[in-house]
Structures are given as C-alpha cells and as structure tokens.
Design a protein around this nucleic acid. Structure first.
Lengths: 198, 198
DNA sequence: TTGTTTTTATGACTTAAATCATAAAAGAGC
DNA sequence: GCTCTTTTATGATTTAAGTCATAAAAACAA
C-alpha cells in the first residue's frame, strides 16, 4: 500500500468505477499501477463454458494487478468492480520512478507479492487435491487469519456468498452449500440465519 | 538470480543434497535464501492420503522459497532434491542486507516473484475449472514458452514424466496418460517413442 | 546380458461432484 | 406492504475422473 501523498506526488489519478465495470481485460498489457481507495475489485477468469474463477478480491488500501507490470507479461485475468469503487491509477513509468526513489515502498510491494504468492501456493495445492470441505475450510480460515487478521478464538462472520466461495475454490454453488451444511452438522462452523460463522 | 560473486561476498555457503533429500519442511520458518547451483529442487505438498502436489521445479540459477522470507510466514510446502544437487544458502539477515545495498538485485527478485505469481494465477484458474487436456496443454505450453523460452514454431520435447505432470496439475497418472494419448490422436501434440513433443 | 526398478499403458469398475430441476428464504427497491 | 431479484436449499440423475488390477516397455544397474 502506497500513501496518498506519495501517489499524488508522482501524478496518480483517481478513477471511478460503477458496479460490474471492467477496469482491465485478461491478456492485455498493463499500463498502470492500481490501488483501491474505496469499494471492492475482483480479479477473475472465465473458462470455455463461462464458469468464473475469482483470483482475488481487493478492498480499501490494496493494490492489484502489479505482477505483469514487473514481469513484462499480460494480465492473467480480468479486473472488475464488485461494487461502486474508486481506485488510484499511476502510470507504469512513474510507478517505477517511485519505487526507485523510495526503496522502503519497493520492499513493501515485494512483501505484498510474497504474501499473495503464499496464498496462491496454499490454495492451488488445496484445490488440486483436497475434498470440498477441506478446500472451503482453508479458504475461510485464510480469510479469517490473513485477510481480516482475526484472532483464532474470536468468531469470524464470513462475508462471502456461497457463489463467491465456489468461484474462489473452483467448486459449484450446490457443492458449497452442501459442504457448508455438512460442516455445520459436524460443528466445524456455525450458521446464524444462513450466515457462516467460524 | 544473484551472481556468485555477490553471494560469496555476503557469506553464502554451498549445500550439497543427495537425491530425495529434504532441504526444508512445510510449516517451518525460513532462515535462508536458497539458489540452485546444480541439479533440480522441487517444492511439494502432500494431502491427507499422501497424494503429492508439485508447486514448482527449480533448476540451475533459480532461487526458491523466498516468499515466506519477505512475508514473515512459514513455508507453504516442502523442498526436496529431485536429483543430486548443490544450492547456495544465504542467511536471512545477510540476504536483506544484500538487497538493501543492491537495489537492482532487489528489483530482479521482485520480477521473479511476479513471474511466479503469474504462473500460479494461470495454473490455479486452469486447475479449478478446465478439462484434463486443457490443463496439461497449458502446463506444457507454459514450460515451453516461459521456462525454456522456446519459440512457438520450434518443437519442444517435454522433459516431465507423466507422474510429474499429474502432480503439477492435480490429476492422476492414468488420466494424464489417457489425455496425452487423446491429444496425440487429435494432432495437438506428437509422441516420439513415448516422449511428448509439442 | 540379465535382473530390477520405473514409467507408460489399458481395461473394468466405482464414486464424488457436477448437472438439472425446482423451490423456499432473504434482501432490495418502490 | 408487495414485487422482483438474488441467494440458499434439496432431491434425482449423469458423468468424468479416480481407483484398482495388471502388464508391457523403457531405463537403469550389476
């Protein structure tokens, strides 16, 4: 996360996005660094028959879509506003100037990438070889511990819909619903008027 | 990739690993930066019933296992020598000194992380929602284009075994074998005495 | 060259999750 | 409050990939 002052200093602009608006498309070259000011942005893919896969959901303060900027690659996914949002947009060239002149910012970005790589490594191993229940539990626990930083003993009210969880784990809604129900029976998590608490 | 001179300067040591030797374990805290001198190192996970998932295979010149070093996390997987190997080992503290004093090295490491994140993003979307044939093709093409940097028109002889491909995509050997055969019939790839050419 | 291990191959069978259909409950808008 | 949309829920059925068993081919070692 880069401070507003620094972003302004290097000429970043605010971009407004209405719900469902697409910020960039898969397989295109990146031109900007992006950081969420308000709202929620998701990065996602669609397979041949239209099934969505959500790479990540980014909220206030989070940057997204930087890897292709560094690695000279195209975007691996779309970026779309989940709700009405505002983001900072900083030109690639300016972004690299900023990094060069502010090494502590560069280190913080590297840390963010490292954290995301850790999440992906965890999820890809799960998705490829674990049961739906295990996958979902890993997802929920990852959000609780790493995204929202809620202590183990405190309850976490999952803000994701069943469909979003399905799209994050590669499952189908029905499978998610059944797995959640089954875990409730086993007392692995609780349901409070259809809301998941863990 | 950090040059030998620089590594030596900061006190890196050579570590020898015999085939199948484990360098670090999943869920432990990182203490070193590692870089392959010779041989091959794989990072892998095992699920409840022992099924392997290969996160990546690293050969000469590649570093691995850096993300948890940056993000203050534990290793998401094991690291094991695929064959007899030698690696550079540099203490965490020294590694960060090196980065601080050599900003171009820091940038190159960030680029490596960005590239790996790109690979993971690509594979996780594939694994979660595509057919075995599609997954395998994506894997093979990724190795051809991004790892070995072979031009599209030149043939690429896949060096991975069916089992390794299965472990990289979350499939079973039998499924890989059948999918490869089926793709040969469709002329998507060639088989030359059981070796895959794409 | 022969014996041993690993890799590739194939058929028969099982199963877990996807698919399809349909509905109840909850939430949003007026 | 009522209407429309979205989300959650559940049963019946299908299917693709996993599992199991077994063998041929290739690679490696003695």
């Amino acid at each position: 996360m880069i401070s507003n002052d620094l972003l302004k200093k290097y000429g970043a602009e605010k971009v407004h996005l209405s719900k469902k608006e697409v910020l960039f498309k898969v397989d295109t070259l990146p031109r900007y660094y992006f950081q969420v000011i308000s709202g929620k942005i998701k990065m996602n893919n669609f397979n041949e028959d239209g099934k969505e896969f959500i790479q990540g959901i980014f909220s206030e303060g989070s940057s997204f879509g930087e890897p292709p900027l560094f690695a000279d690659l195209t975007y691996p996914a779309y970026a779309e506003a989940v709700e009405e949002s505002t983001v900072w947009r900083l030109e690639k060239k300016k972004f690299f100037e900023l990094l060069k002149e502010n090494s502590e910012v560069h280190l913080s970005i590297t840390k963010v990438l490292a954290g995301r790589l850790h999440y992906k490594a965890t999820m890809v191993a799960e998705i490829s070889s674990e049961s739906p229940e295990h996958r979902l539990l890993k997802l929920i626990d990852y959000f609780k511990t790493h995204i929202h930083k809620i202590p183990d003993e405190e309850p976490y009210l999952v803000e994701l819909s069943r469909q979003q969880m399905a799209d994050l784990t590669g499952l189908r809604v029905e499978t998610v619903i059944r797995a959640i129900k089954s875990m409730e029976k086993k007392r692995i998590l609780q349901l409070q008027s259809h809301k998941i608490v863990r």
